[in-house]
Write a protein that binds this DNA or RNA. Structure first.
Length: 706
DNA sequence: AACCCATCTGCG
DNA sequence: GCAGATGGGTTC
């Protein structure tokens, strides 16, 4: 062979280790290459599909591609796609997932045989494998990281439980019902399409409704529509309380809760009942015993046989943002999944997120919402008690609970429970316009201003520019003021304002979250997101510290404030039954008006338009690269994609005592998101292959970018 | 983490 | 001219 020495190193190594290795052995010298230890020789290999392509369960990004192993004949029947295996990888034994079995290896070297099959269960279905790969690609992460989110930890004892398949009850046949959808334009048509086996996509704004036609019932009816078409369904909710509400509604709609030995029911897939229960539920879905999965965010990856419908409820809830790498979001994972598995997609809530609004305005999904007449008929009367409104009350107007609010609570208590919503404790420093209180944004890149500098000069949190000659884009004001966000006062304190009345408290930090309170007069003080339901609806709701909710400069404060208010307001009886909602405090004007008019779509739509002009997501794609300075610079430097803007780096306050982390924000047009994610993943692979030092996190579409 | 390989460095 | 150190890259 001519030019032998010019062969690429891998080829040279291979031929040395192969037949020519012995020929090169010279007298007096050791063997040129020692034999590699774990060759397939001596092992009888499978005759059919003797090659397994596997995903190695190790974190480094440069290992995120399939590795090929020889399949011993003894494992041929077990080492099927989706099955966990142990393989020799370099010097170590590692876990891996079989992705596929093929006839020919692509790798042009000797293959090492699989060591053993771990449990023989195909825990990663082909659909989930594809979804996990797409998720890793979308968020610049690795397949191994996503599979760690998707596949619950193995629980051998649960696995051993024999599914009593012969004793299974006959599959329940739910009756069709669309009552909870009757008042939503496009709702009944969506259900019909789902039953017919189609893949419609809908963004749904829910109306408040009494038990039987509330949002859990609406979701249950959509699931029934999928079941009537002989397909499975997946419902993902922010927390376990919501999961139980949907399971109850499903049972009422004729889809019973799955229990071992039954078939066709709905399984509860959450982490809160422990690893055994979680794995049992996972296996019930995997084995096709349960055809409906209802769970929290990790269940977006649950195996559901013949998936016909995915649902994400209240996609604005921060609990839908996965806190572990690569930080995927339930709504987006389910959107990907609906495309990959050609199933129906439903995202909904009382509010409308900007991201969901974008799905509608980009033509990806249809809108399902009630018309104004229905909205008025089903919602409470909303009043905003701003200081202007309360001017004649004198100094008391600025009180945390102004007299008119106190009077309203007193009055409505005669009719039933009254809900008082208080913001969660905590402080976030931010800068707002001193005149109109709009969040202050950078004049150059429209990032949010903050007070990072010790001398109090406002600087942009993204590009780091000083806001020297800042002017408010809303009102033209030139003064800035810092806003302190949060409430340190306890909920109990409020209860003292109503002596003789039962006060119930619901909140994480205040002794626990109540799921439900009885239909009797009581003041129910709840932190945001911890509001209990009550059978006949609240007589009134008072939303305190409204200014706190819209202060701050994080992206999407306004839709988020509205979402929290609507979450409480939706629990109140309609105006025709005396239901009243009082928003207390000087919140931002547009958010306040959107609540008064009960118009979440209008707010989301305006916010989306504004984000378009300012170059903020979801009109663009952002990636936050944060960590030690050298690491951030090195990773960012290798990212070269069209139309890339590099904002920063800026130091991140509150990280590292001596050398604070820095953050760089990468911005590309929306269409460039895929390319940006791929380039980032490639740069991270180089970083890990070269063992570049420091710490680093990369987050696409960060939720809490300030 | 353990290794392989190529290149560099210090010393004769 | 050569041993040992160093850095970059692979592991199927």
């Amino acid at each position: 062979m001519p030019g032998e020495s010019a062969l690429p190193p891998t080829d040279a190594r291979r031929s040395d280790a192969g037949a020519r290795g012995e020929q090169l052995t010279l007298e007096g010298l050791p063997t040129v290459r020692r034999r590699r230890r774990t060759r397939a020789e001596g092992v009888v290999l499978a005759t059919e599909l003797p090659v397994a392509r596997v995903c190695i369960d190790l974190p480094p990004p440069h290992l995120d591609h399939p590795f090929e192993y020889a399949v011993p004949a003894a494992l041929a029947d077990q080492a099927l796609p989706g099955v966990r295996v142990k393989v020799r990888f370099g010097r170590q034994d590692v876990d891996a997932y079989v992705l596929e079995r093929v006839t020919e290896a692509e790798h042009d070297g000797e293959l090492v045989p699989l060591r053993r099959v771990v449990d023989g269960l195909p825990v990663v279905t082909p659909q989930v494998a594809r979804l996990a790969r797409a998720t890793a690609d979308r968020w610049a992460g690795t397949l191994a990281d996503v599979l760690r989110l998707a596949v619950p930890p193995r629980h051998a004892r649960v696995e051993g439980e024999v599914p009593s398949s012969d004793e299974r009850a006959p599959e329940p046949v739910p009756a069709p019902a669309a009552s909870a959808w009757a008042d939503h334009r496009g709702g009944p048509a969506f259900l019909t399409h789902v039953t017919a086996g189609g893949a419609p996509r809908a963004v749904w704004t829910a109306l408040p409704g009494e038990p039987g036609r509330g949002w859990p019932d609406a979701i249950a009816q959509a699931v029934v529509a999928a079941r009537l078409g002989a397909r499975g369904a997946l419902v993902v909710l922010p927390d376990a309380r919501d999961v139980d509400r949907v399971l109850a509604a499903l049972a009422a709609a004729g889809v019973p809760r799955w229990t071992p030995g039954t078939s066709g029911g709905a399984v509860r897939l959450t982490a809160d009942e422990g690893p055994a229960a979680r794995y049992r539920a996972f296996l019930a879905a995997l084995r096709g015993h349960a055809s409906v999965v209802v769970g929290t965010r990790a269940s977006a990856f649950a195996p559901v046989a013949d998936l016909g419908l995915v649902v994400c409820w209240d996609d604005g809830d921060p609990l839908h943002a996965e806190p572990r790498a690569p930080y995927p979001h339930t709504r987006e994972v389910l959107a990907l999944r609906s495309e990959l598995e050609r199933c129906a997609f439903l995202v909904g809530g009382f509010a409308r997120t900007v991201e969901a609004q974008a799905l509608v305005e980009h033509g990806w999904a249809h809108e399902v919402a009630a018309d104004r007449r229905q909205v008025r008929a089903r919602t409470a009367r909303v009043r905003a008690l701003t200081t202007t409104e309360l001017a004649r009350e004198g100094p008391a107007a600025a009180a945390r609970l102004p007299t008119p609010a106190w009077r309203a609570i007193r009055e409505r208590l005669a009719d039933g429970p009254v809900l008082v919503q208080v913001p969660r404790a905590g402080y976030v420093p931010a800068v707002a316009c001193g005149r109109c209180r709009a969040a202050a944004r950078c004049g150059t890149c429209h990032g949010p201003l903050g007070l990072a500098k010790a001398d109090g000069t406002p600087t942009c949190g993204w590009c780091g520019r000083l806001a020297a000659d800042w002017r408010c884009t809303e009102c033209g004001g030139a003064t800035l003021r810092s806003v302190r966000i949060g409430s340190q006062r306890t909920a109990e304190e409020l209860g003292r304002a109503f002596p003789g009345i039962t006060v119930r408290v619901s909140g994480r930090a205040t002794g626990g979250v109540l799921a439900e309170v009885p239909d009797r007069p009581a003041v129910v003080v709840a932190t945001v997101g911890a509001e209990p339901v009550t059978p006949a609806g609240y007589a009134a709701a008072v939303l305190l510290d409204a200014a706190v909710a819209t202060a701050g400069s994080s992206l999407g404060v306004l839709p988020d404030a509205l979402r929290r208010w609507l979450g409480a307001a939706a629990l109140v009886r309609p105006a025709s039954d005396g239901g009243v909602v009082l928003l207390v405090g000087d919140a931002e004007e547009r958010a306040t008006q959107a609540l008064v008019r009960w118009d979440p779509v209008g707010l989301a739509s305006r916010e989306l338009a504004e984000r378009g002009t300012l170059g903020l997501p979801p009109a663009v794609r952002l990636a936050a690269v944060q960590g030690s300075r050298e690491a951030v610079l090195a990773v960012v430097e290798r990212v070269t994609v069209p139309d890339l803007e590099v904002l920063g780096p800026v130091p991140v306050p509150g990280t590292g005592d001596l050398t604070p982390d820095v953050r760089t924000v990468l911005r590309v047009p929306r269409a460039g998101g895929t390319v940006l994610a791929r380039a980032l993943a490639a740069s991270l692979a180089v970083r890990s292959a070269r063992r570049e030092g420091g710490t680093l996190t990369v987050q696409l579409d960060p939720q809490d970018l300030r």
